[in-house]
Design a protein around this nucleic acid. Structure first.
Lengths: 208, 208
DNA sequence: CGTCGCTTGTGAAAAACGTCACAAAATCTA
DNA sequence: TAGATTTTGTGACGTTTTTCACAAGCGACG
């Protein structure tokens, strides 16, 4: 029941949540920390320690009720509600993300698409019309957008970020390969595929 | 000059490498640990500690020679050569990745595309023809493929992984939302956008 | 009801990771 | 050459994160 939670704990909670959904799909009603550990890449003690940051949800001798723990994890992770998301950048990555079914299934709802390319502005993606960057502030305000998925070239990313921050954005999933500067109350998660590929080639090279 | 390197160090090395390329582009010849720290999200001591795992590349009083350190980082990360990559899954994500310019610029060369959809098999993407899954083993063998970019539905991922491992694959960049089971000599990096969005919503909810 | 088997929750120990502080090495200046 | 100045490389230290170990809680069963 502490205050400061490690980022690695949060990642594992996401994974537990997915496992719980699988387990629920299998029709099971309870699960032990050991089984959750096996399905993740961790240990039973780690599972219990992770959960203990937020309360005690299990029953000794029995384990955790699957649906109960699932709902608690949804609450903890803040995905027990809909998040209004804007997709900034209607290129290849943006297009792939827009169709990515996993987002909607977790309550992330794309309510706006923005692109700077005059050829794209005005086009329809599904029910959404692509908007020009000038409308960023008004879109955030009128639609209640809290999250940005930022899939624009690196040189445009900081400028757009500054405007989004000014208009009250709360979090950014950043695909641009730069470190965005934001005030401390704005959350940023970087997606960096080159970095992950380099982690692979390092690991392989290391082992010879 | 130690043996076991923290994953966080590797991520930072990738970032230093990008910074060095920027700095070189600005025409500078040397750089201090402090400047590298400023461009990353870290401290000068951390930069020096990270580098010290692999040797001592700087000159006291001067800093690091930009081009020299850049080349050393390329070697350390294993990107001082070409990696033959296969793209498994020619859907939206696969398409976005295939056109992603950053991959080629770091020496990751896509030499094969595989998809299970009969409607896609045989189609050309650039100079590459989309292959059926049955050819996975022979493609790995004949083309010298070492890395997979796995962008297929979750239920197909483990099966394809098993076959790739059997045929000698060394690393997998996994977009499927499951934890792949692989022998310890195979490296896996998971790309999990839902997990990253959940990290955002957690952070925002926490501060709420 | 008492005991047995199972599994949680949690302090305490250990390990991993990051920070600090400073001696050592390099250049520059005179 | 000597002294001033800069910045690295690294052992010692502090903090964070993981692992360990076990008391305590729960259900089952005779």
């Amino acid at each position: 029941m502490s205050r400061r939670i490690p980022a690695s704990t949060i990642r594992r909670l996401s994974h537990y949540l997915r496992s719980l959904e699988d387990i629920e799909g299998e029709g099971r009603e309870t699960v032990s920390s050991e089984e959750l550990a096996d399905r993740g890449q961790t240990t039973a003690a780690q599972v219990r320690k992770d959960l203990s940051h937020f309360g005690s949800f299990g029953k000794r001798g029995l384990g955790y009720r699957v649906d109960e723990l699932r709902v608690r994890l949804l609450e903890i992770l803040g995905v027990d509600r809909v998040w209004k998301v804007a997709l900034i950048g209607a290129g290849r990555i943006g297009s792939a993300l827009f169709e990515y079914p996993a987002f909607e299934s977790r309550g992330y709802e794309c309510v706006a698409i923005v692109d700077a390319d005059p050829e794209k502005i005005g086009a329809m993606w599904g029910a959404l019309r692509i908007r020009p960057p000038e409308e960023i502030e008004s879109l955030i305000g009128s639609l209640g957008i809290e999250l940005f998925i930022l899939a624009v070239p690196a040189q445009a990313a900081q400028q757009i970020t500054d405007r989004a921050v000014g208009a009250g954005i709360k979090g950014i999933l950043n695909f641009a390969p730069i470190r965005l500067k934001v005030p401390s109350h704005v959350a940023v998660e970087d997606v960096n595929l080159v970095m992950q590929l380099e982690a692979l080639s390092f690991a392989i090279t290391q082992r010879g």
